[in-house]
Amino acid sequence: MKRRTLLKTSLAASVVMAVGSVIPGRVMAAYPKAAFENKDAAGALNDMFGTSDYAESGDIKIKAPEIAENGAVVPVQVSSSIANIESISIVVSGNPTPMIASFNMHGSEGFVSTRIKMGKTSDVLAVVKAGGSLHATRQEVKVTIGGCGG
């Protein structure tokens, strides 16, 4: 129940300290801040991967509702049979900052499932990085204003 005192120093410093304390000896990528703050989907991909070019792929499956029950909680599952997946990223072009999440696989299977926020009807883009190039597929999720639930 201990409340951690928030570090008022620079964000970067606090993050480094926290990582150091929680996850000792790890050698991982740095947090891709620019990609998550970019307001443009292509720009965010460019920040994340150095390119926004991807090949449309039938080997990636997105499981997401056609109509979101509530834009605050939209279940999204991405799976892919592509070999040697390095990462899976979820991008929502209609959100103020489209890059939602990026999973570096470290040898785990080509599967992630999470729940995301969607501000309005938009494509959900699943981007798979494998063999140094990007593959992607998309699915539209409709976000409506509800009568009572919304």
Binding site: R26, M28, A29, Y31, P32, F36, E37, A72, V73, V74, Q77, V92, N95, T97, M99, I100, A101, S102, F103, N104, M105, H106, G107, S108, E109, F111, V112, S113, T114, R115, I116, K117
Partner: peptide, 22 residues
């Protein structure tokens, strides 16, 4: 390490995540 995830505020409150590994 089997998975490393980077997130922003677009992941829902009380986040859920599922993945598979050998």
């Amino acid at each position: 390490t089997v998975l490393e995830a980077f997130w922003a505020g677009g992941v829902s409150k009380n986040p859920y995540m599922s993945f598979k590994y050998k």
